[in-house]
């Protein structure tokens, strides 16, 4: 290191690979996956009950505090997991830079919107 260059090797490495953040995507994908194993099984069960319910029964089902909580957890974990997964598919197969960035942003925005819309709907039902 010269006298004028006071940057440490870590400073030069940051943003160019790991620097202790490279595994973040991988780990988040696994963490949301583990959360979704029981949540997806629960969702299948609740979907079966919704399939047999009329409007009043369906609303009562989602109004239940435990179901509202688990449904919110499922929706958040599912859209997060979906964004992480689709991101990798786009990285792998879309090689036109502007199209890749456009798709990545669109997927992020749509997943965020989907999660927000679902949570708002659940809150309206749970409090209504």
């Amino acid at each position: 290191m010269s006298a004028l260059e006071l940057k440490t090797p870590l400073k030069r490495a940051r943003g160019w690979g790991s620097a202790r953040s490279g595994t973040r995507h991988f780990i988040l994908q696994r963490v949301t996956a583990v959360a979704l194993v029981p949540l997806a099984l629960w969702l299948l069960w609740i979907a079966l009950r919704l399939a047999r319910a009329d409007y009043v029964q369906a609303r009562a089902l989602v109004h239940d505090p435990l179901h509202a909580l688990l449904l919110t957890a499922f929706v958040l974990a599912a859209f997060w997991h979906a964004q992480l997964g689709v991101q990798v598919v786009i990285e792998d197969y879309v090689h036109t830079r502007w199209l890749e960035i456009t798709l990545q942003l669109a997927v992020k925005f749509l997943c965020a919107l989907g999660a927000l819309a679902s949570v708002l709907a659940i809150v309206r039902i749970a409090l209504g």
């Binding site: 979906a82 997964g85 689709v86 598919v89 989907g114 709907a121 659940i122 039902i125």
Partner: peptide
């Protein structure tokens, strides 16, 4: 991968179901 993408798109169905359930009997 294919089912993952299908699920990402298919979750819109769950969003539609929840939004209509919040909106009222006609939408549901």
């Amino acid at each position: 991968r294919a089912t993952g993408i299908a699920l990402a798109v298919g979750t819109i169905l769950l969003v539609a179901l929840l939004l209509s359930l919040a909106a009222g009997p006609a939408a549901y």
